[in-house]
């Protein structure tokens, strides 16, 4: 039970990071972006590439940090991956979404996002191969937190959770204390009024893509660290991430952060009563439950 909760919180942190960017884009551009989860893959794979480059160029970076399998090289690679992923998100918007948007066909955006997701996911498979990869071949043993009940946790997982919590705190401070944060929330609530108040919408759209891409890259690297890297990361995580945004209420950044943890916990606790084969269905059951009990989510408002 406690082990499931622990695992749930760790997965939840990853989902929170993924859902935050998704909810902002969905609210601002008004479409369900099915390609968002592919940004996690782009982040995970670009970190893999930079990690290999750093390790071979500067062997000193290849040493592990403390008890972690994570190296300094991977830490730097992660930061670069965030930039690359943010830039990719902006590029996809330029190439596809903005052009569909400008045709005035908002409903087609969701089709476009599905098509784009297919292209990205399978192009990654073609470039990097279909088999799984790992950041580190070394086996890091889980630390026993307690023997009765038996609780195991990997140092990497704790580091992941720690970094995710720091990022979430930084996001919270930005949103609640800075003019930039107010502007982000203002655009999410009412883009037209934000524009009247001097906010440049085009710039803000780019900012939201960069931010969403960066957070997705982090989530992707963390997922790769605690599981493995495969081209199907996006396919496997798209539904849990959407579930997190619906739990929190589409458009609510705080809702997405909390929703990620709720979905992570619920999915892991559900394994106590459901055979593990059913775990891909759990996010859908969560979505159904939210739609039945509280359709607009924890923090969402009814919108048209």
């Amino acid at each position: 039970m406690i082990q499931h909760m622990l695992d749930g919180i760790l997965v939840g942190a990853i989902l929170s990071l993924g859902a935050t960017g998704l909810t902002m884009v969905m609210h601002m551009l008004r479409f369900a972006n099915f390609s968002h989860a592919e940004l996690l893959s782009i982040g995970a794979y670009s970190a893999l590439v930079f990690d290999a480059i750093f390790k071979s160029a500067l062997p000193v970076f290849a040493t592990q940090i403390g008890p972690l399998s994570m190296t300094l090289a991977l830490g730097l690679a992660m930061i670069l991956a965030m930039g690359i992923t943010g830039a990719s998100a902006v590029l996809f918007d330029r190439l596809v979404f903005r052009r569909v948007r400008e045709k005035g066909d908002e409903l087609s955006m969701v089709f476009a996002s599905f098509g784009l997701a297919l292209i990205i996911r399978n192009a990654i498979g073609l470039i990097f191969g279909l088999h799984t990869k790992l950041y580190s071949q070394d086996i890091v043993f889980a630390t026993v937190l307690s023997r009765d009940p038996l609780l195991l946790v990997k140092p990497d997982q704790l580091a992941t959770l720690g970094i995710a919590l720091v990022i979430i705190l930084a996001l919270h401070l930005t949103l609640s204390r800075t003019n930039f944060g107010f502007a982000l929330r203002a655009v999410a609530e009412n883009p037209n009024l934000a524009q009247v108040n001097g906010i440049n919408l085009q710039k803000m759209i780019v900012t939201v893509w960069v931010l969403g891409g960066g957070l997705a890259a982090l989530a992707g690297v963390f997922y790769g660290l605690s599981n493995q890297i495969t081209p199907t990361i996006g396919r496997d995580l798209v539904l849990p991430i959407f579930a997190a945004t619906i739990v929190g209420g589409i458009g609510s950044i705080y809702g997405a952060l909390l929703g990620g943890f709720i979905v992570g916990l619920a999915a892991n606790l559900a394994l106590l009563i459901l055979p593990s084969g059913y775990s891909p269905s759990v996010p859908f059951l969560i979505i159904l439950a939210v739609l039945l009990i509280r359709p607009n989510g924890l923090f969402g408002e009814a919108r048209t």
Partner: peptide, 14 residues
Amino acid sequence: RHDYLAISTFGVAV
């Protein structure tokens, strides 16, 4: 809003 239908129908297929 229309995105709920998109997500739910995707979910029902999974």
